[in-house]
């Protein structure tokens, strides 16, 4: 489903990152970064709450708004029962929607938020997400100190919190349209190759977005997928070409590839992942380029692997979804 919006604007964004992301090539674009993965908290889970809370506070500070000015907060993350989002949202005492689309959560939130703003039911909506490398490893894989060897296709969950404020008040960046993803299953079962799991979802969403709006990929200055990683990025380009006859070329990139320096930061393997991976790149780096008008039209496609260790152990394939929004500079 593709929708167009007339009155939805990005007021501002706030990004807070962990140490690995700060050391990456986009480190300077984040509002705040921590050297310590614990961020001064006692557990990985509380640290994730801390990162998300920081991003919410920075966003309010940057936009000179008070908690009461926010009509709705939409947030989701990877931890069971999306607890990081709930604990971070609680002190703000704002109407709250908790959502889940794995690593596509940030844009699911933006799409829901955009609809509330477009319909005039909410004037200001905050859409947030977070993830924590160690928290995710603990929940989805092995204890963090175990250090189990992984293949080169594995990705590295990004650490951070990121928030976006949508409003009907005019600004320089407009949320122009959105496409809601369809769950895909091409029987991929390897949790250490999530790029291969998610590429079909990205391909389907990009294809439907372009055909619904009768656009060519060249319409956009930049098309960004969420967290496919270096191998997933190549799979998407190949699959998009053979299956849909669409070439993604110079104007296409992947946030997971951009977030880290893949040559020097060997621990990230195929690149970044996690809900905050695409959110850090989109809300940190891309927004800055849009504000400077170095980019005019971008298509953001957040990709999510709807992975559950339980279903995986029961030999079920890993499902995937991708949601897209397009942003335009207002002339």
């Amino acid at each position: 489903m593709t929708q167009r919006y007339k009155n939805v604007y990005v007021q501002d964004t706030a990004t807070v990152s962990g140490p690995y992301e700060a050391k990456g090539p986009l480190g300077k674009y984040f509002d705040k970064s921590y050297d310590d993965l614990y961020t001064g908290e006692k557990s990985w889970e509380l640290s994730e709450v801390h990162l998300l809370t920081d991003s919410l506070e920075i966003l309010l500070h940057k936009t000179h708004l008070k908690k009461e000015d926010i009509n709705l907060m939409i947030s989701g993350d990877l931890l069971n029962q999306i607890t990081s989002s709930c604990y971070a949202a609680e002190p703000f005492k704002v109407p709250f929607l908790g959502i889940y689309s794995a690593c596509a959560t940030s844009l699911e939130g933006a799409i829901i938020g955009a609809n509330y703003v477009e319909n005039g039911e909410a004037e200001r909506v905050i859409c947030s997400t977070s993830s924590h490398n160690m928290g995710s490893e603990k929940q989805f894989r092995n204890p963090t100190e175990y250090g189990a060897p992984k293949p080169g296709t594995a990705t590295f969950t990004a650490t951070g919190g990121a928030s976006l404020l949508l409003s009907s008040k005019k600004s320089t960046i407009r949320l122009e349209s959105s496409t809601i993803g369809i769950i895909q299953d091409l029987e991929q079962k390897d949790p250490l190759n999530m790029g291969a799991v998610m590429a079909p979802a990205a391909a389907d969403t990009i294809y439907r977005h372009l055909t619904d709006l009768k656009r060519d990929p060249s319409y956009y200055d930049l098309i960004l997928t969420g967290d496919l990683g270096i191998y997933g990025k190549e799979i998407l380009k190949d699959y998009m070409k053979t299956e849909y006859g669409i070439s993604l070329d110079a104007n296409y990139n992947d946030c997971g590839v951009m977030l880290y320096n893949l040559q020097d930061q060997k621990e990230v393997l195929a690149g970044g992942s996690g809900p905050v991976c695409s959110a850090l790149v989109n809300y940190g780096y891309v927004m800055k380029l849009l504000k400077k008008k170095e980019l005019k039209r971008v298509l953001l496609v957040a990709t999510g692997a709807l992975f559950s260790p339980t279903f995986s152990y029961q030999h079920q394939s890993i499902l995937s979804i991708a949601h897209a929004i397009s942003l335009e500079v207002v002339e």
């Binding site: 080169g152 296709t153 029987e187 991929q188 299956e243």
Partner: peptide, 16 residues
């Protein structure tokens, strides 16, 4: 389609 996709995935897999 699934078989074809598997071939694409295997083509872009790094050698361990």
């Amino acid at each position: 389609e699934k078989k074809k996709y598997e071939e694409i995935v295997n083509k872009h897999k790094p050698k361990e």
